[in-house]
Each structure stands twice: as structure tokens, then as C-alpha cells.
Amino acid sequence: MDFALTDEQRMLDETLTRLVADKVSFEQRRHMRNDSKAGADNALWQTFAELGLLHMPFSESVGGLNGDGTDLMIILQALGRGLVPQPYLFGLVLPGQLLALTASAEQQTRWLDPLLGGEHQLALAWQEVAARNDAKGITTTARRENDHWRLTGQKTLVMNLESAAATLITAKLDSGKLGLFVVPAASAGASGFDYRTMDEQSAGDLTLQDVELSNDHCLSENVEGALDEVLAIGRAGLCAQALGAMESACDQTLSYLKERKQFGQTLASFQTLSHRMVDMHLHLEQSRSMTILAATSLSLSCEERDYRIAAAKAYCGESARFIAEQAIQLHGAMGMTDECPIASVARHLVMFDHYLGDTDFHLETVSDRLDAA
């Protein structure tokens, strides 16, 4: 099969590569993470809006540019390569795609249009202590009372919670089905505990205590199919983001081996270290193939899509950890310091395996499919 990019996709890749190189250096990234202007007010996010990147992954029917899985892969790979701290996947793609699939025209005008225009960011809260990898164990409840709803429960690892103008929340209904609600920031009864993940991404835990919402804040009373579709998009996107970070880790490590000298010779001249570098590139190229598989599987049937994406996420998770460990080893002790750029890349690669299901969870999905066959 021909996996070559189209002329438009190559232009997108080149534009993003230049943008990231110009706007997101190691020192600039540090400043962004400590910037008091978070969320949609950030200058880089507004640049994304001006370039049409916020519209790219959405269909034309909701005002997007009709980008496919390959377009999303190109964007997230470039952002992952530069460890761009903006929550493109968690603050835009995941909540935005759920809105596109479930919201009415009026709800899209209220929440989706400003999202694509760069006016605000959103968050998606679906994980819980008993539902870390899928939605089967969700215990947050929503009950209807006349002309409003009441939500009670607790969500964990809500990415981009601090900067979100509103959070999309999954909750069990009295009917036993899974509902989806949009809860504006600072709603009465909703309290968040914000923190940074190991790779310095913004996250938080959200507690809901009798949060009262009007009927127009209910996006769907049966969201399971749409949620599965969006999580598949998220997992494929994470693979692309990790692929970019793996490329960065390999490039940084190779440059270090070529420059660093030991006993009067560069480290790259030692055969054992060269073999390690080759192993890193083998994992990188195999992960590239699996990422392409995931990106091109989003339009398949649910069963085939989930099987392929689970295989890609599992393999990329193992490769990401391997490359992170080898990069740190080859850099030596300095690779563990915060002043060394490879440390940030390694933390991101290790954490990649914990977002939207870890390797063990996805291997179980693959195993179940093979057993059924």
C-alpha cells in the first residue's frame, strides 16, 4: 500500500515543524508551563486557531476542515516531537468530537463553535477509580428531577480541567444507560483538585455533589457508542504524539553520542552503544508502522477499529518505555536532570502508556479478539 503523504499533508507537516521549532524551544516550553495565561488565552493556542489547526480534525458539517486520521496523526506527531504543552488532544479533539457526535445545533453553537474558534478550551471527564480504562465501571450518577438533572460522583485524571470553560461528564442514568452532560466551570457543587502529571501536563480530580443542571446541559442519554469512537480517536492520536516524542528522543541521543567523548573517542564509535542506538531506531520505525495502522483504522467497523488501535497502543507503549530507558542510559546521570531536555521527553514517553488504557489493558483486548477468532 502507498502511505505517502499528499502535497497538502506535506505542507501541513512542514508548516507545523517550522512553527514548533520557532515557538517551542526547551526554554520557551518551560515558560509556557509556568505562564499565568493558560488555556485559550495562550498566544500559541491563538496561532493554532489562525492557522486553522483547531478546525482541521472536525467534519465540514460542524464547521471543520474534514481532516482524517492521517491529518490528525501529522499534527500530533509534530506536537509530540516538540513536546508542545498545549492540550490539543485533551482540550480540543476529544471533547470537541463528542460534541460533534452528540450535541444539538443549539448546543454546538454554545460550546463547539467557540472551541473551534479558539475562544475557549474544554475537558472530558470519564475516568473514575473503578473505571480507569473503559466506561464499564462508571459510578457517577445523574437523575432527572422535573426540568433539571442532578449529578453526583467523582472523576479522576481529568486532563486540562484547570483551563476548561466547561467539562463533559459521563454519568449513569436510572435507565442503566450512560449519559453525557456539559458542566460549566465553577458550577455550584462541583469542586476540582488541580495537579500536574509526571510529564507536567495539567490534570485534576473533579468531585460532583448534587450538581444541578438544566435539560439543555444534557448532550446525550445514550453516549456509549460515541464515547467508544472518541476514545479510539484519542488512542490513535496518543500513538502519533508518542511517535513524535520517540523521534525526538532518538535524535537527541544520537547527537549526544556523536558529540560526547570518552577516552579520546566519541561515544558513537563504541560498538555496544551503536547497537543500542540501532535497537532504538528499530522500535521507532515499528511504532511508526503501528501508528499509521491506527490512524487509518478510524473509519473501520467498531470491532476491527478497536482491535487494530489496541494493538498499536500496546506496541507503542512498550516501544516508548524502551526508547525512554535507553535514552536515559546512553545520556548517563545527566539524563535524569531537569536541565537536560531528554529528561522531559523520557517522562512524557513513560506517561504515554498510562493515558487512555495501559499496555496490559490493550493486550487483553487483542488477546480476547484472537481467542474469539
Score class of each variant (00 low, 15 high):
residue 235 R to T: 04
residue 98 L to M: 14
residue 263 F to M: 08
residue 330 L to P: 05
residue 93 V to M: 01
residue 25 S to G: 13
residue 54 L to P: 00
residue 132 R to T: 06
residue 163 S to E: 12
residue 275 H to N: 12
residue 362 H to Y: 11
residue 233 I to A: 11
residue 112 L to M: 07
residue 236 A to H: 05
residue 301 S to L: 12
residue 48 F to K: 00
residue 182 V to F: 04
residue 137 G to I: 02
residue 314 A to D: 00
residue 352 F to N: 07
residue 335 G to N: 11
residue 219 L to W: 11
residue 220 S to I: 11
residue 114 P to A: 02
residue 138 I to N: 05
residue 291 T to H: 00
residue 291 T to M: 06
residue 336 M to I: 09
residue 173 L to Q: 05
residue 65 L to V: 01
residue 128 E to S: 06
residue 232 A to C: 03
residue 234 G to N: 10
residue 147 D to K: 14
residue 145 E to Y: 10
residue 282 L to W: 13
residue 278 V to G: 07
residue 182 V to W: 04
residue 210 D to V: 06
residue 174 D to H: 11
residue 30 R to V: 07
residue 27 E to M: 15
residue 370 L to A: 09
residue 206 L to D: 01
residue 103 A to H: 01
residue 52 G to C: 03
residue 89 L to W: 11
residue 96 G to V: 01
residue 264 G to H: 03
residue 203 A to Y: 07
residue 281 H to L: 08
residue 324 A to N: 01
residue 369 R to V: 06
residue 259 E to L: 11
residue 117 G to M: 01
residue 343 A to F: 15
residue 202 S to Q: 14
residue 25 S to P: 03
residue 49 A to C: 04
residue 138 I to L: 13
residue 206 L to P: 07
residue 355 Y to M: 13
residue 81 R to I: 00
residue 113 D to I: 03
residue 180 L to E: 02
residue 175 S to H: 09
residue 179 G to D: 12
residue 62 V to S: 09
residue 91 G to N: 09
residue 238 L to H: 13
residue 323 I to E: 00
residue 347 R to A: 12
residue 290 M to S: 14
residue 2 D to F: 15
residue 261 K to H: 10
residue 257 L to A: 13
residue 130 A to G: 04
residue 4 A to C: 07
residue 361 F to H: 11
residue 294 A to D: 01
residue 335 G to D: 08
residue 179 G to C: 09
residue 196 R to W: 15
residue 208 L to Y: 09
residue 345 V to P: 14
residue 33 R to D: 14
residue 315 Y to F: 15
residue 175 S to N: 12
residue 364 E to T: 09
residue 221 E to F: 06
residue 155 K to Y: 10
residue 202 S to I: 03
residue 264 G to P: 00
residue 133 N to D: 04
residue 26 F to I: 06
residue 345 V to Q: 11
residue 316 C to W: 05
residue 123 A to R: 03
residue 216 D to M: 07
residue 47 T to R: 09
residue 326 Q to G: 12
residue 179 G to T: 02
residue 248 S to M: 12
residue 223 V to K: 06
residue 17 T to R: 01
residue 315 Y to E: 10
residue 333 A to Y: 13
residue 28 Q to N: 06
residue 268 A to P: 05
residue 263 F to G: 05
residue 122 L to V: 02
residue 147 D to L: 02
residue 316 C to V: 15
residue 342 I to Q: 15
residue 101 L to S: 08
residue 281 H to S: 10
residue 47 T to G: 10
residue 330 L to C: 02
residue 354 H to G: 13
residue 121 Q to W: 02
residue 159 M to V: 15
residue 149 W to G: 06
residue 245 A to F: 10
residue 164 A to K: 00
residue 174 D to W: 04
residue 244 G to K: 05
residue 317 G to Q: 11
residue 267 L to V: 00
residue 322 F to C: 06
